[in-house]
Design a binder for these strands. Structure first.
Length: 191
DNA sequence: TAGGCGATGACCT
DNA sequence: GGTCATCGCCTAC
C-alpha cells in the first residue's frame, strides 16, 4: 500500500489507545492494539475476501469478532474506509468498570491480567459472535468511549502471532502499562 | 467433503 | 524458558 494509506492505518490504531471499550457489564481502557491494513496486508483476514471478512469491507467503527483456535474470540474495530478493509485488533486493556463482572468471567485471574490478550479481553467484556457488526459509536450497548484528553505515551513493535508480515511494526501499546501482553513471535513466521 | 492450519491461552519446568 | 489442547474456517479436491 502507499505511504499515505499506511500512515492512516497506524494513526487510527494509535488513536484507539486510552479509549474505553464498553462491553456487556464491563468496560476496559484499551492499552494494546495491532493494526491490520486490509486488502493488501497479507496478515489480514481481509487479504482474501470471504464471508467471514466481509464485515471489514463495510463502514468504519463496526465491531469485527472472530473465533480463533476453536475456543477464543478476538475483537477488532473496523477502521475503514469502505472497501479498504483495514481493522485494529484490540489486544489488551485495563478493566475500568464492572470489574466484579469481569472477575466472574475470569475466575482465579489477577486483576491486571483480566483483559490481557485478545481472547481474554473479549471474554472479560462478554463479547462474542452476537456482537459482530455492532456500531461502536452508537449511544448504548457495546460501544467505544471518547478519546482521552491527554494522549498516552505509545511504543511500537512487531505484531504477535501472525505468520506473514510479522516484522511490520504495527503493534502499539501504552508505554509501561502492566496490562500489556508479552510479545511472542509466531512459531510459523519466517525469521 | 476432507484435511490442514491458526491475529491463543494455559500449564509446565 | 517451552509445550500442547482444541475446533471452526478456508482451500483444494
Amino acid at each position: 500500500m502507499d505511504q499515505a494509506t499506511s500512515d492512516d492505518v497506524t494513526v487510527r490504531a494509535r488513536s484507539l489507545l486510552g479509549r474505553v471499550l464498553h462491553g456487556h457489564g464491563a468496560a476496559a481502557r484499551i492499552t494494546e492494539v495491532e493494526a491490520y491494513g486490509g486488502v493488501d496486508d497479507p496478515a489480514s483476514h481481509a487479504f482474501t475476501r470471504t464471508t467471514r471478512s466481509e464485515i471489514m469491507y463495510g463502514p468504519a467503527w463496526r465491531l469485527y469478532v472472530y473465533r480463533s483456535y476453536g475456543m477464543h474470540f478476538c475483537a477488532n474495530v473496523v477502521t475503514g474506509p469502505t472497501e479498504r478493509a483495514a481493522a485494529v485488533l484490540v489486544r489488551a486493556g485495563e478493566i475500568v468498570d464492572g470489574i466484579e463482572t469481569a472477575r466472574s468471567r475470569r475466575i482465579g485471574v489477577k486483576d491486571v491480567a483480566l483483559a490481557r490478550g485478545p481472547g481474554n479481553l473479549a471474554r472479560a467484556l462478554g463479547l462474542d459472535l452476537d456482537d459482530l457488526g455492532t456500531d461502536l459509536l452508537s449511544a448504548d450497548g457495546v460501544r467505544l468511549g471518547d478519546a482521552p484528553i491527554d494522549p498516552p505515551p505509545v511504543m511500537a513493535g512487531p505484531r504477535v502471532g501472525v505468520s506473514k508480515a510479522a516484522d511490520v511494526p504495527w503493534r502499539f501499546w501504552i508505554t509501561g502499562d502492566p496490562t500489556v501482553s508479552a510479545y511472542r513471535r509466531s512459531p510459523r513466521a519466517p525469521r
